[in-house]
Design a protein around this nucleic acid. Structure first.
Lengths: 214, 214
DNA sequence: AGCAAGTGAACAAGACGCAGCTCATCGACG
DNA sequence: CGTCGATGAGCTGCGTCTTGTTCACTTGCT
């Protein structure tokens, strides 16, 4: 998914208004960028944090010549994923269901949807809280508690709607073939890209061709 | 800077409307999250890309017990910073000036501001483009070109309008202090962290205190 | 206000970043 | 809608960074 496609997906939060979505995306990214450039660490609880980190001078290699090169000391942007993002990406936790209702009123009433989002978040949060409290109380039984969360994951899956579970199954299926699935996903929108990637792999020999030129 | 402060900064793009800003931030982050969870790589040219990466099972160590632990195979979120973000963070490139005018109309007319933003982007882009073309043409002189870019930075400054040049002069002046300012900023926070790091070291004994409790 | 996230420390194995170059892809603009 | 300049990805190998667990405390957010 590229920027344009992201804007398309984001537009759903703005009643299909792509311009508003584009403005939102640009604004968010630009603001984060400016703060990081200023040396400010931008910490978004749950999602992650962006910060400027100093990378000391170090020896690196020119992959083409194999020569060692001294990379100068510089500042680089660093993103550290937050717990929530990690949890949903790993599948340990599911994202709150995004209702169409949220998307619709989003553009009309920023406050109303925010409350709905909070409500949805609360629904997801308490369940987790309870789960965490249980192990917290069973300090000695934490080992077992570890196993408990594993059971929790499926429990949540089961707790969710049948379709969600179906989606969950699809999700893991995607993980297994993550290397394969993305190709499929890519194949849908950018099969050309997949082909393009495969093509470049073939172009690796193409590079050999230029090597011959050399 | 935390989420609340980020929303404050972002509100400037929405006529001070914090709710709209919050909605924008939440929408963007949630959309990115959902796409990544779905296995989609979200590539935002210039800023960076978010993707789900598979981490194979591996042996890790429990630092407290020294025990080897088998970390299960899991999916983790990964962010790769884009060239533009890297350049501005490293100081190799400056961010286009953000005019208040942009912020003001942003909330009123999503379309109009988008165009203005685009116009501003163009101003920044062509200058860079021209600068880059120059080196691109001197393919053989790339080695020199490397040295050239250092000179380019001022060259671009000169190429800009007199006022822009004035601004450029201010900009470099800001650069000089920028490094000083961020250092100070960093000094403020970093030392705090450093202090914090030292503080926890002191807290190590504090842990002994609870040990006494035990 | 209460709960979750974040932080720091410990250590070793595994993951990641980064040079320069080339080609494919992207996206802003006319 | 097409164009073209900018960006992204991949290559190699080595130095740097992250990650597991646990605990206690601080901070942030709903």
């Amino acid at each position: 998914m590229n920027k344009t496609q992201l804007i398309d997906a984001l537009a759903a939060r703005y009643e299909g208004n792509r311009k508003a979505a584009a403005h939102a995306l640009d604004s968010v990214l630009d603001t984060i960028t400016r703060e990081v450039v200023k040396g400010e660490k931008v910490a978004i609880t749950g999602f992650g944090s962006f910060e400027k980190r100093v990378r000391e001078a170090r020896w690196v290699r020119n992959p083409q010549t194999g020569d060692r090169v001294k990379a100068k000391k510089k500042s680089v942007p660093k993103f550290t994923a937050g717990a929530d993002l990690k949890n949903v990406v790993s599948g340990a936790k599911k994202l709150p269901k995004l209702t169409v209702a949220k998307a619709a009123p989003a553009a009309k009433k920023a406050s109303a949807p925010a409350k709905k989002a909070a409500a949805a978040a609360k629904k997801a949060t308490p369940a987790k809280t309870a789960a965490k409290k249980a192990p917290a109380k069973k300090a000695p039984a934490k080992t077992a508690a570890k196993k408990a969360p594993a059971k929790k994951a499926p429990a949540k899956t089961t707790a969710k709607k049948a379709p969600a579970k179906t989606a969950a199954k699809k999700a893991p299926a995607k993980k297994a073939p993550a290397k394969t699935t993305p190709a499929k996903t890519t194949a849908k929108k950018a099969p050309a890209k997949t082909a393009a990637k495969k093509a470049p792999a073939k172009k690796a020999p193409a590079k050999k061709a230029p090597a011959k030129k050399a």
